[in-house]
Design a protein around this nucleic acid. Structure first.
Lengths: 247, 247
DNA sequence: CGTGCCGTTGATTAGCCTCAAGGAGGGTGG
DNA sequence: CCACCCTCCTTGAGGCTAATCAACGGCACG
């Protein structure tokens, strides 16, 4: 079980943060030119992960963080009794593996939902480098903190929202992140199954499916399997903010 | 609303991490003697927070982290429409304020549930100092990562557990943390209301109350208002791990 | 000795889950 | 190229869990 964690397919060629088109979204945010070039030394290799394969598993030794370069991931935790929970979906520019720092061992699985590439960031090198320059240190802390804030948002969602609100919030969050990456804000293709969405949102897949259908009936969405077109963004937003606040 | 965040009651006297009895639980974990003494310079002041007062509020400018010295806190986030979610309960040795790093502004409220004292850790000084010595840097990262892992655990709870399982998990987590601080593992006094427990667990206060009563009927607990005695710890544990796994 | 907050308990309801059946799409092998 | 299979998705019927609404008891505090 805890043995060889998927064959490492480490591509030999280098990738430079300084010339990466994700540098405004990823770890290098806010770094100036000279710092950026020093970061290139840190992010030395790329790794490809085929759809369905795991980047790391709970229990694996922690050595590196991973920045998604292309593709799409989910992370999930599971309890001893086999309960499973998707804790997040990660797209280009987002960091994977922060959970591993706490115990030098990953505490969740990271699975590619489509063929993907990640930049491998040796964690001990990151610590070393961030001792040398402030901006990188600060940026890294911000990223960890942002993950905490995001998690709190998910708790709010799971703890106090109803099914429709959860799905609406989920879709709006997805489109917002896609928009920041230059994609359409009204049309998207889901990379995950209904069951994975349900796990993330604390719902069963049937409920997710029904809620999609309901949104479609109400003219909020057009749903064709995994192709989603948002017809009424404000309508979705209103679902979240005070369902019936006409006062 | 966003004006003066509760009158600062900064006690003038210093407190030394190097002589603090929480140093095995708090930020200084794993630091050796010389490092510890340098940390004393960082943690310069203590602040008292009366029961019911806020340590910081969402929207407040972020400047410091806080280590709970004595007392008990809750943190909660709220959405625009007034929905409210308790995201955690913090006791002695635990850090508050990590959410603020991401946007230089706190994103949740921290409220004292009993008269409390915190150590004030100037964040920019912490960054400076952790650039100078590795162990502090590493320890700080571990603490942030641990918070992320904890949050994932809460997501699992909120996303996939039933009321009884949630409350059982909550009680076991509390007693475990109390035990690590030298308190009894079988007897505790809740610092929070049923409503706050409910908010944290994604349940209504009536459900929390009913579940307490049920546990009492089943002989798992003795419940007298906020005084809880655990009569059958294994029974609670079994509730979480595979409710009915006799196979 | 009131007053207000907190907790308990009951009756009813709503929302989501469970179980079940069937359809659509994509990939594979004949 | 088609038949087949498998996975994923949709939809319906019925049941269960937890929410809601409501009333009351107890404790702390002024």
């Amino acid at each position: 079980m805890t043995e060889a964690s998927t064959p490492l397919k480490t591509d030999a060629f280098k990738v430079a943060c300084s010339s990466c088109n994700l540098r405004e979204l990823c770890l290098p945010v806010g770094l100036d030119r000279p710092d950026l070039e020093r970061l290139d030394a840190l992010v030395s290799t790329r790794r490809s992960v085929a759809r369905g394969d795991t980047l790391f598993r709970a229990g694996d030794a922690f050595e590196s963080l991973y920045a998604v370069r292309t593709g799409f991931f989910k992370t999930c935790v599971s309890s001893e009794d086999g309960r499973d929970q998707v804790t997040g979906f990660q797209m280009a520019g987002e960091l994977l593996g922060l959970d591993g720092i706490s115990a030098d061992r990953h505490s969740c699985d990271a699975v590619a939902l489509e063929d993907s590439q990640v930049c491998v960031i040796q964690y001990n090198q990151l610590e070393t480098l961030s001792r040398e320059f402030t901006d990188l240190q600060h940026q890294f802390h911000k990223i960890m903190s942002r993950e905490i804030v995001r998690d709190h948002g998910v708790m709010l969602l799971l703890g106090s929202m109803r099914a429709e609100e959860r799905l609406a919030a989920f879709l709006l969050n997805l489109t917002q992140r896609l928009q920041a990456r230059g994609f359409s804000s009204s049309s998207l293709i889901l990379r995950m199954t209904r069951e994975e969405i349900g796990s993330y949102l604390g719902l069963k897949l049937e409920t997710v499916s029904r809620t999609f259908s309901k949104f479609q009936d109400e003219g909020l969405l057009e749903v064709k399997q995994r192709q989603i077109r948002i017809l009424n963004q404000e309508g979705l937003q209103q679902l979240i903010n005070g369902a019936g606040s006409t006062c």
